[in-house]
Write a protein that binds this DNA or RNA. Sequence first.
DNA 1: GCCAACGTTGGC
DNA 2: GCCAACGTTGGC
Length: 161
Amino acid sequence: MARRHWLFKSEPDSYSFDDLLAEPDQACFWDGVRNYQARNLLRDEVKPKDRVLFYHSRAKPPHVAGVAEVIEGGTPDWTALDKKSAYYDDKATREAPRWYGVRIRAVRKLEPGVGLPALKDNPALEGMRVVQKGQRLSVQPVDKAHYDEVLRMHKRLAAGA
DNA sequence: GCCAACGTTGGC
DNA sequence: GCCAACGTTGGC
């Protein structure tokens, strides 16, 4: 199956791309997603080798901060069973875990990040979900053409263009 | 910090 | 099963 592309949102104050880089193996389990649409994508669609744009939401400005690779597809998010976790959900059980996550590993940091205003200004990214108003989904599918264009934008930024 | 957009909950 | 109230997200 062809590699697919995604955008994962995270508030850098709670978990940033640098935090991912600081993990053992620069890998983490992407837990805490508590939205059914995003859950379904993590459980059923996001597969090993897929690529992820790691997006910093609620930053100034919001931006794509790095690229990651999926290293394991959907498995239960057991933080839902942990009463001490901020992600605890009393409707989740061991038999019916309800929430899922995937494992990702950092591929590379994008320095500088590609900002949301630039994404919005780029006609080639028309239709990309993250540029649309009110788009809150924290796991979004990304067209390959859009993914490639974001990396080209970063390349131009890094070259000082 | 504000608030629009959106998802979820719960009374009926 | 509708929908108002509520809570959360996330750009600004």
